[in-house]
């Protein structure tokens, strides 16, 4: 159940400079936990103290904003592309 995760610049220091990594997980929360195992510290950057996605982080699964889906419980599966994009842009 491998997914591809696109990593934005502010997080690339944690991924050794990689802008794209592979991860596993049946849903987005599991993918984040997987990433935390591989790249310690990344979860705290994506999620706040209560474990929810931070206000200024947008996450997309195959181009769809997960806030239109099921947030961290959004199902993920083989071949999905997950994009992490800073929210402070545009307008």
């Amino acid at each position: 159940m491998s997914v591809t995760v696109r990593i934005p610049t502010p997080l690339r220091r944690l991924t050794g400079g990689q802008d794209k990594v592979e991860a596993e997980g049946q849903n987005l929360g599991e993918v984040v936990a997987f990433l935390e195992g591989e790249y310690p510290g990344i979860k705290a950057r994506l999620c706040d103290d209560s474990g929810e996605l931070r206000t200024f982080v947008n996450v997309y699964v195959d181009g769809e904003d997960v806030r239109f889906l099921d947030g961290l419980t959004t199902a993920t599966g083989s071949g999905n592309e997950i994009s992490i994009v800073p929210a402070v842009a545009g307008g």
């Binding site: 934005p8 610049t9 802008d19 181009g63 994009s83 994009v85 842009a89 545009g90 307008g91």
Partner: peptide
């Protein structure tokens, strides 16, 4: 919003001045 997201990803990888 989709255009904005595409540009955000583009801005991350190109040495351009994206004004917003």
């Amino acid at each position: 919003d989709q255009v904005n997201r595409l540009c955000s990803e583009l801005a991350d990888n190109l040495p351009w001045a994206f004004v917003n």
